[in-house]
Amino acid sequence: MKLIVYSRAPRDTKNLGRRLGSLLKGGEIIALTGDLGAGKTCFVKGLAKGLSLPEQDILSPTFIIIQEHFGRLPLYHIDLYRLDEIGLEELGLRDYLFSSGVSAVEWFERLREADELNCLEVKIGFEGGSVRRIELNARGDTYVRILHDLERCFLVARSEQGEASS
């Protein structure tokens, strides 16, 4: 299952992250891909909000690679940017990705086993100016359910907005 969302500004990207974060139950892998400056860390700031963490706590983890946060659920914010290629068995990645916390992995494609893992892919692409095309792709049943719920969130939000304006 796939869901495509257009974000007009960082605020929209964060909101999408927040909605997704609020639906998570633990054990999920959020696989973020997109060029430098696309808004991956921005998305994770939203995700953190959805996990009852202050978004200011989320800094770029590029320097220390793995940053742990403890909100409603543990959030492991991982950034593989500095690594050309890395395996699951390195840096204790397996322990994070298969824990009961939420792993948000930036530059997920650099993981050697990237294609074999069930996860929720979040691909952020530039669409001119501040607009981003965010493609969410469910890999595995758990993630299909999450995407269904996320889609419902959007429909509800839209109908509420419609009512408010009418």
Binding site: D35, L36, G37, A38, G39, T41, C42, S60, F126, G129
Partner: peptide
């Protein structure tokens, strides 16, 4: 310093 990085990326693109 995240926005400036994005701005440079956009300029290059």
């Amino acid at each position: 310093f995240s926005g400036i990085k994005t701005a440079v990326a956009l300029t290059l693109g």
